[in-house]
Write a protein that binds this DNA or RNA. Structure first.
Lengths: 225, 225
DNA sequence: CAGTCATTCAATGTATTGATTGATTAATTG
DNA sequence: CAATTAATCAATCAATACATTGAATGACTG
């Protein structure tokens, strides 16, 4: 748009793309859209962003080619466009985490304990659930929990966790999970739990991985899409 | 910074990161820095960005943790910070290219010919160079060529290519190269050459790959770092 | 075909960002 | 220690981006 003579126009294109990702609201919306097609109003509810504002951010994402739309009755459904979008998000996320860790290593020691964010494997999870050693904690928003969750999991959205700690048994290991490997909600939950003295782990698999590998036939509470 | 209550603060951090990458100048600077430690003035020359402006963009990159500095006499040398920075850039680039291709497929047919941007392998390059079938064209800026180039390559920076087409023999295949797999200069050069009727290919390896695998001992004109 | 629901558009005010200029600091040289 | 070189800072102005509001469109419903 400006000094096009300086270098190559692809830098402008990449910059436009990056700028589109340069707002927390749009990242939040993308995250939700990545889980499946959603209408605008659902997105406002999941994200807490005002309606018109949501719509405008969505349109920026659309202009940038990151999402596509389709009409269904009076609703407009947004879905991820194809292309390596999640690669970009994943790369950005891991870079941000990298920075985070570097900062934490300097100022914080509780969080930098090597096992503090350690995840628990699916096999170990199943075994220890059977032995009733652990409590499985779903920290996603109410709506997502309602739409389907792991068997035996209780739901405390991470925003309410601090107030509702009393619901968790002190003597058991708390295993938090959320949407999948990229989801940070459960990591956040761990921070809270560990700060209050719970022995907590993270189930990295999250819901999608569990679903993809029907490990047991205990019955999932999956109701609808 | 604003609605931190809506979701998780990591979204703000990622957004900040993305916004830092959301300006062509900073991407250009990063690209050059990625090739090795450089002082501010060198960067202004390579990029064509005004001095004070360059300095300010560099400081944004530094604040974002993407580059680090070290003083050497009166110069300040910038280098890439560690962490998966190039992953992010690569992911962004490939997403941008993906979009580009999709657009090209719709509006352009010259450029979408399957072999138009096809690369030539190192082995084929060496063989056909020996047989004098091809002309090797280095499309990087003069300074970079001066610092080292492939044996036998001639240098026409891509910006001057259009005016200096007369220097290229019509009867040979032109093989363009630039900085490496991610570099788009040579793709741009191909567009120009093919538009004027040359048979042209791209050597995807670029300079770094060539250097990393000393294929022949013809002697490289690599002078200094 | 009037009413309503879902979404988008248009307009406004404010805040942030970027480029430019000239002044300033830091390290080196004579 | 004055002069020079390299980089940053500070101040300004223009351009963009964002949130909010209220109006307008589009599609279904009775």
């Amino acid at each position: 748009m400006k000094n096009a003579d300086v270098h190559h126009p692809i830098f402008d294109e990449i910059a436009d793309l990056a700028r589109t990702l340069g707002h927390a609201h749009r990242l939040v919306l993308l995250r939700h859209i990545a889980d499946g097609e959603l209408a605008v109003e659902q997105l406002t509810q999941l994200s807490g962003i005002a309606l018109a504002n949501t719509s405008q951010h969505l349109q920026q994402l659309k202009r940038a080619g990151l999402v596509q739309t389709r009409r269904d009755g009076k609703r407009v459904l947004y879905r991820l466009a194809d292309g390596p979008i999640e690669n970009v998000l994943g790369a950005l996320r891991s870079l941000a985490n990298h920075r985070r860790e570097q900062i934490r290593e300097l100022i914080d020691d509780t969080m930098s304990r090597p096992d503090s964010l350690e995840s628990i494997s699916r096999e170990e999870l199943v075994r220890r659930m059977r032995d009733d050693e652990i409590v499985l904690l779903d920290v996603r928003p109410r709506e997502e929990y309602a739409a389907g969750h792991l068997p035996g999991a209780i739901n405390i959205p991470v925003g309410e966790l601090e107030e509702r700690l009393a619901e968790l048994p002190r003597e058991k290991v708390i295993v938090a999970y959320c949407r999948g490997v990229q989801c940070v909600l459960s990591a956040d939950a761990l921070a809270i739990l560990r700060a209050r003295g719970w022995d907590s782990r993270r189930f990295e698999g999250g819901l999608p991985e569990w679903l993809n590998s029907s490990l047991d036939d205990d019955g999932m509470n999956y109701e609808s899409g």
